[in-house]
Simulated scan of single mutants.
Amino acid sequence: MNVWEKIEKRQFSPLYLVYGPETFFMSELKQKLLQYALNEEEMDFNFSSYDLEETPVELAIEDAETLPFLGERRLVVLHNPVFLKAEKSKEKVEHNLKKLLDYIEKPAPYSIVVFAAPYEKLDERKKITKRLKEKAETFEAKKLNEKETMIWIKERAKAKNKEMDDAAVQQLMTLAGMNLMILASEIDKLAMYATETSVIDAGMVERLTAKSLEQNVFSLVDKIVNGKIEEAFEIYYDLLKQNEEPIKLLSIIASQFRLIYQVKELARKGYGQQKIAAILRVHPFRVKLALEKAQKFTEEDLARIIHLLAECDYAMKTSAMDKKMVIELFLLKFFGRNQK
């Protein structure tokens, strides 16, 4: 039974430690505990949250040791426990770690204390870290890779009594990106829509998934890459109707083509998808999509496209030409060149 299932069964631990860079899981843990550990009337009296970059931990411990008011338990969330992280940094606040250690050894039976540590690694050499990991229900909130995200999406849909096949999951990831908060919201929306079926298919995902500006531009670039001129112009005009600034659109288009160029060049040098993602500091799924697009171009093609986009950027900033027309000319030049 995992930590989420235990909470849903109201099998609470007096101490929770959630650490890692994926803050969605921290938010999810907090929301689950609020939902199952406290009722609505108790929240004002028995829930508190502290930022340990600003507040000494002993104040939070005193709160946890205080008997709950008009309820069975207290919930105390401690954000940014800087004394746990591996990287050294100057702390603004002095913490009484002796008092914290004493509390960890004998936590109040009526309180739930959550340590939310948004750090890649904890300092495992410290006594405080060792004892907390031994005593607390611990969950590593790591960033998910593509395969893990696909599994997570399917499981989240299953929890809503819905099924999603690989095509629907891939479509959702392509349209909504890899942000778990956004994906969770989209899955909830799709599940609510699919009242007469237990299956969420790729077509439903395409129709209902909200697209960010970046994703709309990603779709525009996809149409450009695949030579679909009419669909490219249709997306572009739709973005203009949404009052998106042409100079902003041009910037995002250029960043997409730069990524395709960089990915192609690094792949040519023998780097794998994960290594490329680490070098460019982007999600591996974005690298995968860029690699697929990169196959349609030579390095010389991409260099020319990037040069053309730079000329468009210069024209937008220095000439009297209508900015909307600058991108139209780019699209016409791009498709005209590919038809030669």
Rank of each mutant, 00 (worst) to 15 (best):
M181N: 14
N96Y: 07
Y261V: 08
I182V: 15
S185A: 14
T55D: 05
V57S: 00
Y237R: 15
E65K: 15
F47K: 00
K9R: 13
T209Y: 07
K324C: 03
K106L: 10
P68V: 02
F24I: 02
K121H: 04
E137Q: 08
S198P: 10
A277P: 10
V225M: 06
C312E: 01
T149Q: 11
K142H: 09
W4Y: 14
T197D: 00
L183D: 05
E230N: 14
Y16V: 01
E234M: 12
K154D: 05
H79W: 14
K98F: 11
S27A: 13
K264P: 07
V225I: 07
L259P: 10
E206K: 14
A37S: 02
E105Y: 13
Y314Q: 12
V113I: 03
T129E: 01
L29T: 04
H95I: 06
T195G: 11
A64M: 04
V282E: 04
H79M: 12
A191S: 12
M26G: 10
L309D: 00
S27L: 13
V326G: 01
L213R: 14
K340G: 14
V199H: 13
E5W: 01
R207C: 09
V76R: 00
E196P: 15
Q11N: 11
R131M: 13
A64C: 04
A167Y: 14
P21C: 02
L213V: 12
T149F: 10
H95A: 01
K133A: 01
A254D: 01
Y237L: 12
D102W: 11
L180N: 07
D238S: 15
F47G: 02
K228R: 14
E206I: 13
S255V: 09
G336V: 01
I128T: 04
K189F: 09
K317R: 08
R125A: 04
E328N: 15
R156I: 05
E186M: 06
S49E: 11
K162W: 06
A116K: 09
I182N: 08
G203M: 05
E214Y: 13
A60M: 06
K147V: 13
T318D: 01
I7S: 06
L172Y: 02
G336I: 02
M26L: 11
Y16G: 00
L291F: 04
D166M: 10
K248A: 06
E328H: 15
W152L: 03
Y103M: 03
L309M: 02
P109I: 04
A168K: 02
L70K: 07
L175V: 09
A303G: 09
Y50G: 04
A210P: 12
